Amino acid sequence: MTADEHDSPATGADGHYRALERLYASAPVNHKFASTLHIPGEGRSRLTFTVTEADYHAAGAAHGTIYFKMLDDAAFYAANTMATDRFLLTTSFNLHFTKPVRAGTVIAEGRWVSGRRRVFVAEARLVDEEGEEIGRGTGTFMRSHIALSGLPGYTAGP
């Protein structure tokens, strides 16, 4: 890869993936969490999330809302790799808690399952620092009327 190729902005599918990562980072709700999104390719996403005591319920483990957020975000972004023009909306989500997590880094791996036109199905799983699955979920996402190109966080970047 030449210096010019390395410095040029991403285009095509890769440009879409980088724009989705910027969109995630720009969402005000995500400023409340120590998390980053990476999209390695079509139909996949990887969210790295740090769980702290601030995320605990009264019994001293991460609250279910944290599981939902990580799973929904990972599945959503995996699905939105398949829609380059519109923002998707979550219409339903089922999740299963397998193990409590207290603190540390959690990885949410999202994977698109089906759908390319109006409705998309994607799944995600959560893995703790020991590599054990702590939860999983499946979501249904619908194409909205919101153009991705009209969202400030999605705009082209470096």
Rank of each mutant, 00 (worst) to 15 (best):
residue 3 A to Y: 07
residue 4 D to E: 13
residue 5 E to V: 14
residue 5 E to P: 10
residue 9 P to L: 06
residue 12 G to S: 04
residue 12 G to E: 03
residue 13 A to V: 05
residue 14 D to W: 11
residue 14 D to F: 05
residue 15 G to W: 02
residue 17 Y to K: 01
residue 22 R to N: 15
residue 23 L to A: 02
residue 23 L to C: 02
residue 25 A to D: 15
residue 25 A to G: 07
residue 26 S to P: 12
residue 26 S to K: 00
residue 32 K to G: 10
residue 39 I to N: 00
residue 41 G to E: 14
residue 50 T to P: 05
residue 53 E to H: 09
residue 53 E to L: 03
residue 54 A to D: 15
residue 55 D to Y: 03
residue 56 Y to Q: 11
residue 58 A to W: 09
residue 58 A to I: 14
residue 58 A to Q: 11
residue 60 G to L: 10
residue 62 A to V: 05
residue 63 H to N: 12
residue 64 G to I: 12
residue 65 T to S: 15
residue 66 I to E: 07
residue 72 D to T: 09
residue 75 A to M: 07
residue 75 A to Q: 05
residue 77 Y to I: 03
residue 77 Y to G: 01
residue 77 Y to R: 07
residue 78 A to Y: 04
residue 78 A to P: 10
residue 78 A to R: 06
residue 80 N to V: 02
residue 80 N to D: 07
residue 81 T to F: 00
residue 82 M to A: 08
residue 83 A to F: 01
residue 84 T to Q: 01
residue 84 T to M: 07
residue 85 D to P: 00
residue 87 F to V: 11
residue 87 F to R: 04
residue 88 L to M: 01
residue 89 L to H: 06
residue 89 L to A: 15
residue 90 T to D: 09
residue 90 T to H: 08
residue 90 T to G: 14
residue 91 T to N: 00
residue 91 T to P: 02
residue 92 S to A: 02
residue 92 S to M: 04
residue 99 K to A: 11
residue 100 P to H: 14
residue 101 V to H: 10
residue 103 A to Y: 05
residue 111 R to K: 09
residue 111 R to H: 12
residue 111 R to W: 04
residue 115 G to S: 11
residue 116 R to K: 13
residue 116 R to M: 06
residue 116 R to D: 07
residue 117 R to S: 11
residue 119 V to R: 08
residue 120 F to R: 00
residue 120 F to W: 12
residue 122 A to F: 10
residue 123 E to M: 08
residue 125 R to I: 14
residue 127 V to P: 09
residue 127 V to S: 13
residue 129 E to T: 12
residue 131 G to Y: 03
residue 131 G to I: 13
residue 131 G to P: 01
residue 133 E to W: 08
residue 135 G to W: 13
residue 137 G to I: 05
residue 144 S to G: 07
residue 148 L to I: 08
residue 148 L to W: 01
residue 150 G to W: 09
residue 153 G to F: 00
residue 157 G to A: 15
